[in-house]
Write a protein that binds this DNA or RNA. Structure first.
Lengths: 244, 244
DNA sequence: CGATTACTTGAGCCTGTTCAACAACCGTGG
DNA sequence: CCACGGTTGTTGAACAGGCTCAAGTAATCG
């Protein structure tokens, strides 16, 4: 399974439609093709302190953001306060794609974070001029859909241990995709965030970490650094081949 | 909350970008603007018998479909057979939007169903000529994302009763949006499908229906026709104002 | 009309929750 | 430097919601 945001890193962030664009009949762009990522790279930077919100549900959607450093927790709350973390966004991930005029969830930095922010109005202008950008947005949205579907299946069908291990393995795969150590994970969020992501209580998350440690499958430093010992056993665990 | 597919019906299915298109600088369409829905309405019809699959996960994605009559169950399965229903698609709903080259889930007709099917290749040609169509696809994808996020929150955070009532109320709202009776629901799927959608066993679904009936909040005819009695009490139940 | 599939209901069990206490960590200020 | 309070994480014990297993009933279809 993909980390929800991992999809964005799984391909070059340049639209595969760009090469075709200039040759579309009836469409003669007089500008230099620029990818979505290019636009975001140029956008102004904004710093957010740990625990501060970038936006909250219901806010008018004014910008889309790309995380430069740090981590962001995207979540929704039910009327009675129950919280569900939809996704985490890490460096490179884009937040807020979509055409609604309101934010559909809350975005809170879990640690000190920097993001670039680009006005949606600008994006709409660009996208309506440039079908390649619009298609790239479709692509990104489809990948987000694929990822959240996988997460839905995971969280609804899997046991506590399977969920947590799936989460760790997704982070590991993400690390590998970035050329970083696949066995060493930094968790830039609290147990509460992880619990609300996986649909578990903080106690169950903690207990499950302890169990994995006792099984010799992971090591934990200061709560936030995880070292994966037996990747293959962990994969088996995640898939319910329950040796424990 | 929206029924997952309801989003598609919540707005006219004509792109709001159409009026702008002819005036885009550098883009001179020499054809009559046609909406995504128009294209789908013209597409050839295909009949599927109850329990037959339209496609399965991993199949090359060749078409997108629009349900004309009947109902379709979209689901994924884990390696060990656990099943999660992602969504149901009813008349008017579009299945398979997105730019992956493979189907990401299974689509099975729950009852005898007719769909129109349009080749994705045709859609890509249209979308790369017509930024309005591409933007309309983005819009549809965002709505699908919003809906699945809501469903994720519901299924992970809510109790069995809350989930089932939320499901019934979504169907009711959908009926109302179509000008049909909001109090009378047809359930064109089995208890197993409902259970796998809500992350519950068939027994719990059945028991919960019985409980709602005992509370006098619904009536059930032949298992498939539900009549909602106390909408306001049901809404309270769905939000966890647990009078039961 | 019998066979099959779908649904309902019951009883006991299990996973993860709740409630509670405790430990570790961290920044602040004396 | 350490004492202190607040936050975050860990662990234990009892509970409960939904699951499993099992039996029985209703609807459907050849």
């Amino acid at each position: 399974m993909l980390t929800l945001r991992e999809a964005y890193q799984s391909k070059e962030f340049h639209t595969p439609f760009s090469p075709m664009r200039a040759h579309q009949p009836g469409c003669l762009p007089a500008y230099t093709p620029v990818s979505l990522a290019d636009h975001l790279d140029r956008a102004p930077l904004r710093g957010i302190e740990a625990k501060d919100h970038i936006f909250t549900e219901g806010d008018p959607k004014l910008h889309i953001y790309q995380v430069v450093t740090g981590a962001v927790c995207l979540y929704k709350v039910l009327p009675d306060g129950r919280r569900q973390v939809i996704d985490f966004a890490y460096a490179g991930d884009i937040i807020g794609l979509g055409l609604s005029d309101r934010e559909g969830y809350n975005a809170q930095a879990t640690v000190a974070t920097r993001v670039t922010c680009m006005p949606v109005s600008a994006l709409q202008v660009i996208a309506s001029k440039d079908p390649g950008i619009a298609m790239r947005m479709c692509e990104a949205l489809s990948e987000e859909l694929t990822a959240i579907r996988d997460h839905l299946v995971c969280v609804v069908q899997r046991s506590a241990t399977e969920r947590l291990v799936t989460f760790l393995l997704a982070l590991s795969r993400r690390n590998k995709a970035r050329g970083r150590d696949a066995d060493t994970l930094e968790l830039p969020m609290t147990r509460t965030d992880i619990g609300d992501f996986l649909g578990l209580t903080i106690e169950t998350v903690s207990r499950t970490f302890s169990k994995l440690k006792a099984l010799g499958l992971i090591e934990i430093d200061q709560g936030t650094t995880i070292r994966l010992i037996g990747i293959s056993e962990l994969i088996a665990l995640a898939d319910g081949n329950t040796s424990a």
